[in-house]
């Protein structure tokens, strides 16, 4: 990837920061998300909670659906391609989506390789559960990372675990001497130049959001206090009792994450949160976060 392309790809992610990216399945939801102050929308056919409930193979959305969402809103539109499905990614680029999510929420198309993201002009966001996975995605050309969490559960515990894991692995690198970084790179199976860069920056070299199980303003504010640059909310908004109010409240809590009074105010009168499912009750073969390598 050229230096200019990297600047443009990572630059758009900078513009999304401090914001909330919301899953939407039709134009009406896209407008509700934009009206609530979302910094982008993720266009898809089924939110993760429905993918989980209905089962079957989950694929890229219908281009007509993506077109309709692109024309419904003025904010950036993201869409998901299956892990390793580079033709779905080519289609999404052709449609003019602003960011492609190579996502474990869809059924993987390749159980070995991820998409070579460096050959695309449209930037990619990828999920990660730990530092090595994040750096492998960045090496493949991802311009933004989201910790995976466990999508479609409304249970924030996995999002918490993945963000804490990434953050603590970054801190551990910072404590190593330069000659120890070679082995550290080998141990986490990540390129040495990125390991060295992370050790000196004290953070990932790209914007880092949190995803998977965020359902309340308090969940969003907690992730921001832990150092996330922003949050993805999938099923948490449109599977709740009052999506308009909840979407606005999560945006408010993400901006004022370090002001408990503001988060308390944002948490009032939202109706029912999504019912959700405890991650512990999801059998291991049905855990989406384990997809990706």
């Amino acid at each position: 990837m050229t230096e200019t392309q990297t600047l443009l790809n990572t630059g758009l992610a900078q513009m999304l920061k401090g914001g909330v990216i919301m899953d939407v399945v039709n134009e009406e939801q896209a407008r509700i998300a934009e009206a609530a102050g979302a910094s982008a929308v993720m266009a898809l056919e089924r939110v993760p909670a429905d993918i989980r409930a209905q089962g079957g193979v989950a694929r890229m959305s219908d281009p007509d659906l993506i077109d309709s969402i692109i024309s419904a809103v003025s904010i950036p539109v993201m869409a998901k391609a299956r892990i390793g499905h580079f033709v779905e990614a080519q289609i999404l680029e052709t449609l003019g989506v602003d960011y492609i999510d190579e996502s474990e929420v869809l059924s993987p198309a390749d159980y070995v390789n991820h998409i070579d993201k460096s050959v695309f002009k449209v930037p990619f966001v990828c999920g990660a559960t730990n530092l090595g996975e994040a750096l492998r995605r960045i090496q493949e050309g991802a311009s933004m990372i989201r910790s995976k969490g466990e999508a479609g559960t409304g249970d924030v515990s996995e999002a918490m675990r993945h963000l804490r894991t990434i953050n603590s692995e970054i801190r551990a690198l910072g404590a190593k001497s330069e000659d120890e970084l070679y082995v550290a790179a080998k141990e986490i199976a990540a390129p040495y130049h990125l390991v060295k860069q992370v050790a000196s920056l004290g953070r990932l070299p790209v914007v880092t959001f949190v995803a998977g199980g965020i359902a309340t303003p308090a969940d969003a504010a907690m992730m921001m206090q832990l150092g996330a640059d922003g949050v993805f909310v999938g099923s948490g908004i449109f599977k709740s009792g009052n999506p308009e109010a909840r979407a606005k409240a999560i945006v408010e809590a993400t901006t004022h994450f370090d002001d408990p009074q503001a988060v308390a105010e944002a948490s009032r009168g939202l109706g029912d949160a999504m019912v959700g499912i405890n991650v512990a009750d999801v059998p291991a073969p049905h855990r989406l976060a384990e997809r990706g390598w």
């Binding site: 900078q14 513009m15 999304l16 920061k17 401090g18 914001g19 934009e34 009206a35 609530a36 102050g37 979302a38 910094s39 982008a40 003025s74 904010i75 950036p76 606005k248 945006v251 408010e252 901006t255």
Partner: peptide, 11 residues
């Protein structure tokens, strides 16, 4: 700063 003006005016 840069960002999404729609988000800023609503917040």
């Amino acid at each position: 700063p840069g960002g999404e003006s729609t988000a800023m005016v609503r917040i």
